[in-house]
């Protein structure tokens, strides 16, 4: 019985080591070789709409509720792009914030009306416990995101 116990524990330790080795890979393998600059996607959304891209940059925010998106900082200042994954399929842990991601997915472009933006802003403010001034929304907005399929996260 002792032998069975020792063999079982060793097998479990092996399983844990396999898990540890792959813990910074999320979703599918990355297949795109060439990196696209986030600034290029933001500057030409129509050109990239529906295209599969690989982007790299710092993870500047992570979905606090379900880990279902990360925001990746652009190569240019004041720009970032959201990398949205299917709920539950990939779950990004909160503590990857600040690390560097290489992320692959399909570029999606969505247009939001003023009403939709106000509603979304109010909901976000309620969630975060902050305030939202609806009068700051004056025109429709194009929201860019990458429908994420796979990502690799490095410590630096």
């Amino acid at each position: 019985m002792k032998k069975i116990f020792i063999i079982s524990v060793l097998s479990l330790m092996l399983a844990v080591s396999v898990f540890s080795a792959s813990k910074k890979k999320y979703g599918k393998e990355i297949t795109v070789k060439e990196t696209t600059k986030i600034s290029e996607i933001i500057a030409n959304p129509e050109k990239f709409e529906g295209k599969r891209v690989l982007v790299k940059g710092p993870i500047v925010d992570v979905c606090k509720e379900r880990g279902c998106w990360i925001k990746i900082g652009s190569d240019k200042e004041f720009e970032s792009i959201r990398f949205k994954v299917e709920d539950g399929v990939i779950v990004f842990p909160l503590d990857i914030k600040g690390m560097t991601a290489a992320a692959e997915g399909i570029v999606s472009v969505k247009k939001y009306s003023v009403e939709e933006l106000i509603k979304s802003g109010e909901e976000h403010a309620k969630k975060e416990g902050t305030t939202f001034d609806a009068s700051t929304v004056k025109e429709p907005k194009i929201v860019l995101q990458i429908k994420g399929e796979g990502a690799r996260v490095d410590g630096k």
């Binding site: 710092p58 970032s80 600040g98 690390m99």
Partner: peptide, 21 residues
């Protein structure tokens, strides 16, 4: 030095260290 730096807007800078922002 931080692991990563990001400026979401001209008035803000974010410094990322392991586990702390």
């Amino acid at each position: 030095k931080p692991d990563n730096v990001f400026r979401p807007d001209p008035e803000t800078v974010q410094l990322f260290y392991p586990g702390i922002t």
